[in-house]
Amino acid sequence: MSIPTSSVFPRALEHEAIYIIREVAAQFENPALLFSGGKDSIVLVHLARKAFYPAPVPFPMLHIDTGHNFPETIAFRDRLAAETGIQLLVRYVQDSIDAGKVQEETGKYASRNMLQTTTLLDAISELKLDACMGGARRDEEKARAKERIFSVRDDFGQWDAKKQRPELFDMLNGKINIGENVRVFPISNWTELDVWNYIREEKLALPSIYFAHKRFVIERDGLYWPASPYLNTTESEVPFEATVRFRTVGDMTCTAAVLSEADTLDGVIGEIESAVISERGARIDDKRSEAAMEKRKQVGYF
């Protein structure tokens, strides 16, 4: 059986991403790869390894640990670091809370997503990072900042419209002044399906929560949320067991699951394709809510 062509990964995207990553290593003195444990950053790590093969990756990965991660993600992260030999730096949101720099949110929708921005900015100045690579893609969110591959930030991590440079041809201008740094998005031009097809073709391992598994969840706003000690629940929100998978890997407090039986990559890709392609896909509603979730998740981080 042959795979339908729509499921073939366009290799030009891989060459483009490697070019960008090499340019980061060449133009900056102290770059890092922002690692979230999600599939996009796992792809970035893989691309970085290819870019410098057979030499080791010449920059560390930085994880901003909210303390509310899925344990599977943390285990995966540590294994990946050990296997690849890439230096892993972890900075904790809990430390920012303890230092009184940020305050824990309260209420039903409390999460640490917004808090991690402070931890990240502190890490950038502590580690004197001049470039941070992230796995954001232009197709997932229309935020202006992502339109550039090299996005210049000031001391406060802020994006200034006037500082965004036209990106002509394939030329990347990473010149900055002291105090500025650059966010770099090597897989800007990839879509979600491209990422999944790449993962399949390159046989990349992913945290197990991406595949269908049994888990206790609660239902809220028509979505399934993983039951965890971090989630503030009401009395009527009674956990029950369901077979689910996650489409993104954020915090346990703000990543909703979808009901799914897809326990293999092919199964997951099949579900995504049918959600994208069919006009009356049964799982469309999941997709909608997930899109909203992804948005919430991304506020602040980039």
């Binding site: 995207l13 197709d139 339109e147 036209p166 879509t191 399906l193």
Partner: peptide
Amino acid sequence: IDVAHIYFATPSRK
């Protein structure tokens, strides 16, 4: 907005 990027695919091309 200066340049916006829009993605679509057919079975043969992205």
